[in-house]
């Protein structure tokens, strides 16, 4: 299953929900990948300090993807670029993908969930 997370981290529940699906699926050994697209790439920004927002710390939770068995973490190159983010400076290691690679990624999985 491919999870496409395309909402900014603190805008609403979507980013949290996408991550929860990934962590739950990973915990049960489901083969899955997560793609950060559009504002979703802001989730990967380094140095976020959301303590004052009094929500669960999404940034810290994202670091656990690997341990939960979600090893395939991708980010849309275009989304990163237009938002001034560089792949090498992210808080979570994500492989940047060009548009054609994302097209192929969508079609590699049996299920896609976009949030």
């Amino acid at each position: 299953m491919l999870i496409v997370s395309r909402q900014a981290p603190w805008a609403g529940p979507a980013a949290r929900e996408a991550l929860d699906i990934a962590l739950a699926g990973g915990a049960f050994g489901l083969p899955l990948a997560i793609l950060f697209l559009d504002d979703g790439v802001f989730q990967l920004q380094q140095g976020q300090a959301p303590a004052a927002l009094e929500q669960k710390n999404l940034c810290a939770n994202l670091q656990a993807l690997d341990l939960f068995g979600v090893e395939a973490v991708y980010a849309c190159q275009h989304s990163l670029h237009v938002r001034g983010l560089a792949a090498g400076t992210l808080a979570v290691e994500a492989q940047p993908l060009a548009a054609e690679a994302i097209t192929a990624l969508f079609n590699r999985f049996d299920e896609v969930i976009t949030l």
């Binding site: 395309r6 697209l37 559009d38 849309c76 275009h78 989304s79 548009a99 994302i102 097209t103 192929a104 969508f106 079609n107």
Partner: peptide, 15 residues
Amino acid sequence: DGRLASCLRVLGPED
């Protein structure tokens, strides 16, 4: 909303 622009960017010819 940016969904359409984003979708068109990653849409394959067969999709």
